[in-house]
């Protein structure tokens, strides 16, 4: 009976690590995600140029094709755009904004959804009915429409000169608010199961308050699925942000995200300057695809452990 301490714990960690090692697709996805995150986070230091430094921009550099094609310059590996900005650098800075907005929106969604789901499931009764009906109503609108609505309301309600400076918080709020329902439903479902388990009853017998039980007992036990949803949601949120920016209601060209870059570049697609829009597009695809593949793997790897 020589069971070393932490045997199961280690086995559990081990299982996840094992399934990771045995999934080549996941390894590639993880490496790509890591590369994208690294390039985005460290863009100010890694990017060859600073596309926002107006002093260094030279309109004479505009419309340079990628380095390997005729007329390309080694200074601009992926070419330049209409204002002479290096496409690689704008992509890195754009990915930084896209990722930031995506992650913040997911965090906001998850916080809202988990809290409401927990309340709904644990308190029950009228509060539950109210929250869930709101969720139902929201589900009958497409997420992009809700984001458009929120964004539109913010534009009308707020003074014009503040638009650009608050564009990012508004975008995070509108994407976040459109995504909470899935978290709330999942958490509510798990909460309904957990709250009838005997460890919750034991905490009630000890005399702990509802709030303490929700926070300390139920919450840690409903977070597994939230992690999975969250990972997959990162991809969706980045796409939603890109869509909004592409439609022109997201971020302004002064703070370009990947979506903005694609939109701006789109104008030059038919005049032959394809690289301005294709490379940001490719970056978006790689980023979202690798995050999604990671999320899928996480879901499958955690699933048997999460009952």
């Amino acid at each position: 009976m020589a069971v070393a301490p932490g045997w199961w714990r280690r086995a559990w960690d081990h299982d996840l690590a094992w399934s990771f090692r045995h999934s080549p697709v996941t390894i590639v996805a993880a490496l790509l995600t890591l590369a994208c995150f690294g390039a985005a986070i460290f863009a100010p230091w890694l990017a060859p140029h600073d596309p926002f430094d107006l002093a260094s921009l030279n309109l004479g550099d505009a419309f340079a094709p990628p380095a390997w094609s005729a007329g390309g310059q080694a200074r601009f590996p992926l070419g330049t755009d209409d204002q002479g900005r290096d496409v690689l650098s704008t992509i890195m800075h754009g990915a930084r904004i896209s990722l930031g907005v995506g992650l913040a929106a997911v965090a906001f969604s998850a916080l809202l959804g988990v809290s409401l789901g927990l309340l709904s499931g644990y308190v029950g009764g009228r509060l539950d009915a109210f929250i869930m009906r709101v969720a139902d109503i929201q589900l009958s609108f497409p997420a992009i429409l809700i984001a458009l609505l929120v964004d539109g309301v913010a534009r009308v309600a707020l003074p014009r000169e503040t638009h650009d400076s608050i564009a990012i918080p508004v975008l995070i709020f509108s994407i976040g608010i459109s995504g909470w329902v899935q978290y709330a439903r999942t958490v509510r479902g798990s909460t309904l199961v957990e709250k009838n388990r005997e460890y919750v009853q034991a905490a009630r017998v000890i005399g702990r308050s509802r709030f303490a039980i929700m926070l300390h007992h139920v919450l840690p036990n409903v977070m597994g699925p939230v992690l999975v949803i969250g990972t997959i949601h990162v991809g969706t949120a980045i796409i939603t942000e890109a869509t909004l920016s592409f439609l022109g209601v997201g971020l302004p060209p002064t703070q370009p995200s990947l979506g903005t870059l694609i939109r701006v570049g789109n104008d030059f697609l038919f005049s032959g300057e394809w690289w301005i829009t294709v490379f940001p597009g490719l970056a978006l695809i790689v980023l979202v695809l690798s995050v999604n593949l990671l999320g899928d793997w996480l879901r499958d790897a955690l699933n048997p452990k999460l009952r």
Binding site: R197, E198, Y199, Q201, A202, A203, H217, P220, N221
Partner: peptide, 11 residues
Amino acid sequence: FQDPYASLNPR
């Protein structure tokens, strides 16, 4: 409680 697998918080 009855069920020793459910009466202790697994986390």
